[in-house]
Design a protein around this nucleic acid. Sequence first.
DNA 1: CTTGTTGCAAATATTTTGCACCCAT
DNA 2: ATGGGTGCAAAATATTTGCAACAAG
Lengths: 141, 141
Amino acid sequence: MRDLDELKNVGLKATLPRLKVLSLFENSKERHLSAEDVYKVLLTTGEDVGLATVYRVLTQFEQAGLLVRHHFEGGKAVFELNQGGHHDHIVCLQCSRVEEFCDEEIEKLQNKAADERGFKINGHSLYIYADCTKNPCPHKI
Amino acid sequence: MRDLDELKNVGLKATLPRLKVLSLFENSKERHLSAEDVYKVLLTTGEDVGLATVYRVLTQFEQAGLLVRHHFEGGKAVFELNQGGHHDHIVCLQCSRVEEFCDEEIEKLQNKAADERGFKINGHSLYIYADCTKNPCPHKI
DNA sequence: CTTGTTGCAAATATTTTGCACCCAT
DNA sequence: ATGGGTGCAAAATATTTGCAACAAG
C-alpha cells in the first residue's frame, strides 16, 4: 500500500514530515532508529523537519500501530516498523547491532506464565544481550 | 551478613547514605524502586541525602553487583536487590506493580535461540506488560 | 476555509558532573 | 591526616508542550 494511504487509514493527514519519516523506516537498512537518528538522517537529506515534530510523529505512528517503540539500555527509545509478526531482539554487545528472532514456544510459555499468575498479556519485550561467536561481528569497533 | 561488611566487601566506605539506601532495599515492601522513589522515602524518613548522591550510590551498587538496574517503559530506571537467582518481570499496566517470575523452560529456549544464531548470551531482560484479571488490582488508580 | 500540523523556543524530566566541604578509615 | 564521599547547584540528555504561522482536505 502507498504510504499516503497508509497514513489516511490511521486518520493522519499525509504531511511531508510524516511521509519522510515513514519512508525512512521503510527504506533504511537499519531497522531500529531513535528520534535523534531519524532527525539527523532527515537533516543530512536536506529535509527541514524539527526535532519536536520527529518526536510527535514517532509517537503518533506508535499509537497508530505503524511503529513499535523499544526501550533498550542506554536511555533513549528506539523505533522500528511494525510489520505484524511479533519478534524479539538479540542485541550484540560488540557492535550494538540488533538481530531479530521469533520463537513460538517462548511466546506460548510467556502467555502461560502470565495466565497462571492472573494476568492478561498486553505486550512484552524480550531483549537478549549477547556476544557474536560463530558470527564474525561485522561492525566490531 | 551485616550491611556494613557487605559494603566493605565491594570496596565501598560504609557511609550513612549508602547504609540507608541498602537498608531501604532490604526492608522495603516494594522491591523495585527508582532513584526518585529512594530519594523521597529517605526524605520522609528525615534523612538528609541529596538526589545526586542517591543516583551515585545506586550506580555504584549496580556496578558492585548489589543491585540490578531495569529499564521498564516510562523512561525512568528502577533498581532491585540482586539476590542471585535470575528472574523475569510482569509489569501491571493498571498500577505499575511488578511481579517476578522465573521459567526454566523459557531460559533454556532463549539460550537455544541465541546459540542457533551464533551468539553467546551475556544477559537478557524479559518484561511482560499485562492487565490484572483474576488478581484484583490493589493499587488501581 | 477550518482544523490539524509544524517549527521554534521554552519547559519538563531524568540523570550526571563540578566543586568546596565533610567524614570514615 | 587524607582520600574518598557528600550536598548543592549547574550541566547534560531526552522528551514534551505552548504558540503563532502554515498547509491538507
